[in-house]
Design a protein around this nucleic acid. Structure first.
Length: 493
RNA sequence: GGUCGGGUGGCCGAGCGGUUAGGCAGAGGUCUGCAAAACCUUGUACAGCGGUUCAAAUCCGCUUCCGACCUCCA
């Protein structure tokens, strides 16, 4: 923790020096998925961003408790039906069966993208009691009111008394208040349009419901995060994260609930990731502008000319900043694929390099400077695209060292070792990338060596038809023969 | 309509007052039996118009285009 980390705080709309509430420890809460359908690619970007942030905080030496919830109840549809039970009705399954299915699918996808598991992954349905207690706290503090068994949060009263409402999302309280005169009539039970349910009375046919002091019902859809973050991280913690589109109303209401129940701001730093776009537009199922992770991997989609591996997709996302929109296009993915391969090849080349001098190579300082600046980029609000650019500045140096444009005596073994561990740390430990081309061990490798051997004999005999036939036939099945100075090697295209 | 955030080279994408961003594509070269691959080198940009400044892609104003949120959304 010798370096200074700066993060952009959505709450204050500026970059701030990161300083945790408790020295050496970080509590981070990230809004997780609602498990009523397959994970959306956009979700994946958010979770990969926070995975990188989690990894980087740990790299800095913090002990991090990372809490990411699973929402398996609480989201209310326009027609008042709980989202989970709607999914259940469509699939003709038990609600928890639906939740289980998509939770497992979500976990699989997170594993495929090589993200670390959170420290705690609480479920909303496992915390009904905590949510009920919080509703009671809110009522006790005068910010909740009951209507026919449901409990609503009084945003106007809260705004007037605390001045806290609308801070995060930039809503204007006066506007909310003036709205009340015009819109009062068409409100069902709410006193004001901006009020929101913290406990909903369930209709008879509603499947997911629990007993409470107010009615048999279910918790409001912002409540779980307030209750669970408080339970596992305390009334106040360091980082609260989520997608940009959750700022309002979800996060705004979450703050209202926490302040309303505990009297204090829950999180010190609010971090929001920006949206993943496709072909310049937000991904949306309704207008067909969407692609699932699996379709992206297999290439089974009109939006893509071929499949891209999970690590290529991840690399692609790391090339843009988490707070910027990221535009997914086939062309950009192709570029990422090649760039990623170049990076992996560079790393492999590096691992085989060794110098002729132990210390004080003439180029050591230059290499060290680049490595240092890459970390400085990470310290500046987790700027992965810039840090990645720095890594790419090192690649030509590595290649030149191998190819001889730069003499091996230029860089000392000491610097080389540092460089090797730098690559390991930043690419794999922090970015969370993996080399997918590794380990061709087993019979395939032996087979390929035999074939390369046979071809080499043909080449020695200047039997070009044979050697070209071997090369072209392999090429047709996506195996690339690379003829180099020191013999041939092979790899998948 | 309201509130934010943007428009950077052929594409993606950093930078946000003076430095080469970086990746891909393009061009030139090295290697090679030929090729592919790989590697090295490299050109091209800051939506428009004003203004501030010694200096602006970077600050201010206007114009124009785009996106997000305002309803479930990562």
């Amino acid at each position: 923790m010798s370096r200074e980390l700066v993060v952009y705080n959505s709450l204050t709309r500026q970059k701030e020096v990161f300083s945790p509430l408790q020295d050496g420890y970080v509590g981070m809460y990230v809004c997780g998925p609602t498990v009523y359908s397959d994970v959306h690619l956009g979700n994946c970007r958010t979770f990969m961003s926070f995975d990188m942030i989690y990894r980087y905080l740990m790299h800095l030496g913090y002990k991090v408790r990372y809490v990411r919830n699973i929402t398996d109840v609480g989201h209310i549809l326009d027609d008042g039906e709980d989202r989970m039970s709607k999914g259940a009705r469509l699939d003709n399954l038990e609600p928890m069966e639906v939740a289980q299915k998509y939770t497992l699918g979500f976990h699989d996808m997170m594993r495929i993208f090589n993200t670390l598991s959170p420290s705690i992954e609480p479920r909303a349905t496992g915390h009904i009691l905590e949510q009920i207690e919080m509703v009671q706290d809110i009522i006790d503090h005068g910010y909740g009111y009951m209507k026919n068994g449901s409990v609503y949060f009084d945003t106007i009263k809260f705004a007037e008394k605390t001045g806290e409402y609308g801070k995060l999302s930039g809503r204007i309280i006066e506007e909310l208040i003036s709205e009340s005169r015009d819109n009062l009539k068409n409100q069902d039970e709410k006193n004001h349009p901006s009020d929101f349910a913290i406990w909903m009375k369930a209709s008879d046919e509603h499947i997911m419901k629990w007993n409470s002091p107010w009615s048999i019902g279910f918790p409001g859809w912002h409540l779980e995060c307030s209750a669970m973050s408080t339970k596992y991280l305390g009334k106040q913690f360091d980082i609260h994260g989520g997608g940009n589109d959750l700022k309002f109303p979800h996060h705004e209401n979450e703050i209202a609930q926490n302040v309303g129940a505990c009297g204090c701001q829950p999180a010190k730093y609010w971090l929001h990731t920006n949206m993943l776009l496709m072909n310049g537009k937000k991904m949306s199922k309704s207008d067909g502008n969407t692609i699932s992770p699996v379709e992206l991997f297999t290439g089974d989609s009109i939006h893509v000319t071929k499949g891209y591996s999970p690590m290529v997709v991840k690399f692609f996302m790391l090339q843009s900043h988490y707070r910027s929109p990221n535009d997914l296009t086939d062309e950009a993915l192709q570029a990422a694929e090649k760039g990623f391969k170049r990076l992996m090849d560079g790393n492999k080349t590096l691992s085989n390099l060794s110098s002729t001098v132990a210390t004080d190579g003439p180029m050591d300082a230059k290499i060290n400077a680049i490595m240092t600046s890459a970390y400085a980029d990470m310290d500046d609000d987790f700027n992965t695209p810039r840090a990645l650019a720095k890594v790419f500045e090192l690649v030509p140096i590595i290649n030149s060292l191998k190819e001889g444009q730069i003499a091996l005596s230029e860089v000392s073994n000491q610097a080389l070792d540092e460089l090797k561990s730098f690559f390991q740390t930043i690419i794999f430990d922090i970015f969370g990338l993996m080399d997918e081309t590794e380990s061709n061990a087993g019979p395939l490798d032996g087979l390929m060596n035999l074939i390369i051997d046979l071809r080499q004999q043909a080449r020695v005999n200047k039997d070009w038809p044979t050697s070209d036939k071997i090369r072209d036939s392999l090429n047709a099945i996506n195996i690339q023969i690379n003829d180099g100075k020191e013999g041939s090697s092979w790899g998948f295209k």
